[in-house]
Design a protein around this nucleic acid. Sequence first.
DNA 1: GAAAAGACTGTCAGTACTTACTGTCATCAA
DNA 2: TTGATGACAGTAAGTACTGACAGTCTTTTC
Lengths: 196, 196
Amino acid sequence: MDTSKMGSSDKLLLAALHLIAEKGYNGVTTLEIATAAGLSEKTLFRHFGTKQKLLEAAFDRYHYAEEMKKLFAEKLVWDLETDLLLVSTTYHEIMNRNRKMIQISLKEDEGQLPGFRTRTQKHPQQLLEILTNYFIDMSAKGKIVATNPELHAFTFIMMHFGAFMNDLDSQKSYPGITLAPFVQESIQLFARALRP
Amino acid sequence: MDTSKMGSSDKLLLAALHLIAEKGYNGVTTLEIATAAGLSEKTLFRHFGTKQKLLEAAFDRYHYAEEMKKLFAEKLVWDLETDLLLVSTTYHEIMNRNRKMIQISLKEDEGQLPGFRTRTQKHPQQLLEILTNYFIDMSAKGKIVATNPELHAFTFIMMHFGAFMNDLDSQKSYPGITLAPFVQESIQLFARALRP
DNA sequence: GAAAAGACTGTCAGTACTTACTGTCATCAA
DNA sequence: TTGATGACAGTAAGTACTGACAGTCTTTTC
């Protein structure tokens, strides 16, 4: 990331996000953050007042909160494999954009970060609804057998949630396995399992 | 957990494990840990010398490291649904036994916890091997079609890893969905998808 | 075009609080 | 007597945060 043209506030927010995601809120000092941003500690406090407010500002600034429904409203074509691919890639895109925020939510407990976790959980919940309804509709169209649409949807999302989580830390558990083939595999698996 | 009959060391180790898993290493003080254990802070240091050594001792004491291969050596019966159920339940059992350790590994970065992460990742890696070989053998027996055994295995594990992670924080993303039906669903899904 | 004003930043010294960790001595049970 | 513990006081280091002052750069004003 080229920070040379950014304002001081943005430099600080980015540095805070990176460092807190990596070492946790209590694991980073305000001096570290300021230094990483190429600024003095004093400037940090002039901009944000407290360390807490800095974190909150970073969360507000870099949290992506599009309405999931819009993302799918007109893009579904009612072909199972095509649509599942859309869902998968969209899911991973959004999760990756919110990667740092998710890491922070994982590390810190809710007491100190009011509302952070609910915000990071918003997307997955919306997606579950959408996918459940999709399976119901596809079943009504006779294109799949959906004995338990919500559980199907949940299972599909858990697969991708697991893969995303596994990918989160650079210290990967399963080296040599990349995301793209996995996405393909997950879709074929569902396509074959739900075929009427 | 009834701690009344335990020795002081064990009380401290347990308290440390609980609190660090909940609030992170830097989020808990030695005084908190000692108080939670019903002992004085002094006793904590008499037993473990430093806070770091306390955490390391807790990890050593409560980390379950059975050889996965033994768990499956004679239990597989070469019926897909039966065996997948065994794999799933064993996986969740082990992950749940190591729950606190996994939470700690997630919160703390590797720099401060030498070797912790590799230990928590040992089980998943072993399981991937076992399951891959299982799919290869089942394919050779003509009982399933395994176009890409390792990717099948990876996908199956990611499903359950995702479900486990989702279950980790009490602040669940998906209330109302419990583990048992999900396990059942995941197995049926694979059974139908891999049927020759 | 020069001067003045204002916005932003760095340096440095310092405060107040927390916290890991120690030393001493008394207590108490086996 | 011995071994484990608690109460208490205290040290040393780290850290969030403040105040005072000076420097630089841009913008405004004459």
